Simulated assay, not measured.
Amino acid sequence: MSANRYLTLLAFDYGTRRIGVAVGQTFTASARPLVVIPCDKYNEPDWVKIHALIQEWLPQRLIVGVPLTVGVSSETTIAARHFSEALQARYNLPVDLIDETLSSVAAEQALSERFSAKSKSRTKPGIDAVAAQVILETWFVEHANTE
């Protein structure tokens, strides 16, 4: 794989109240949680903060977790798809959707293994950012031989 094929990616764990964000790169297929971005009372994300992350990390691809329940399109699924479409329209970057159905559960388990029950890192916003990391790690597994 040539150096120009190594990609920086941002992953988003979309929620109507907040969005967890993680960063990773394909060279090492590693990811780490970054931040949680709040949404306003109309469920609109803080686009200024998202723009700042795009400018800081200069990703070549974006990954959005979408809750996929077989045969069901939930309101959250539809909202996550709209968010992914807005990302693509605003930044003209490829956006991949990844099933994130169990990402929050995996994030909670990962945090509980790393931190005591009293740790502030186990609050819900911390879980959202780690869930984004899980989403990105899932993307790496699913694309291990294609990128």
Rank of each mutant, 00 (worst) to 15 (best):
L93P: 06
L93C: 07
P94Q: 14
P94L: 12
P94E: 15
V95S: 04
V95L: 09
V95W: 08
V95T: 07
D96Q: 14
D96T: 12
D96I: 06
L97D: 09
L97N: 10
L97S: 09
L97H: 09
L97K: 04
L97M: 11
I98F: 00
I98Y: 04
I98R: 02
I98Q: 05
D99A: 06
D99M: 00
D99G: 01
E100H: 04
E100S: 10
E100R: 06
E100F: 06
E100V: 07
E100N: 04
E100P: 05
T101F: 11
T101Y: 13
T101D: 04
L102Y: 12
S103I: 02
S103M: 01
S103Y: 03
S103K: 02
V105K: 13
V105W: 02
V105D: 00
A106W: 08
A106Q: 10
A106H: 12
A107D: 04
A107Y: 07
A107E: 04
E108G: 08
E108K: 12
E108C: 02
E108A: 12
Q109D: 09
Q109H: 09
A110Y: 02
A110F: 02
A110W: 01
L111Q: 07
L111R: 10
L111N: 04
S112T: 09
S112W: 03
S112C: 04
E113L: 12
E113T: 05
R114K: 15
F115C: 06
F115H: 13
F115Y: 15
S116C: 03
S116P: 07
S116K: 13
A117F: 08
A117R: 15
K118I: 05
K118Y: 05
K118P: 00
K118H: 10
S119Q: 06
S119A: 15
S119I: 04
S119H: 10
K120L: 12
K120Y: 06
S121D: 09
S121K: 14
R122F: 05
R122N: 04
T123E: 14
T123H: 08
K124C: 00
K124N: 10
K124Q: 13
K124R: 14
P125W: 02
P125S: 05
P125D: 06
P125T: 00
P125H: 06
G126N: 08
G126E: 09
G126D: 10
G126V: 08
G126L: 00
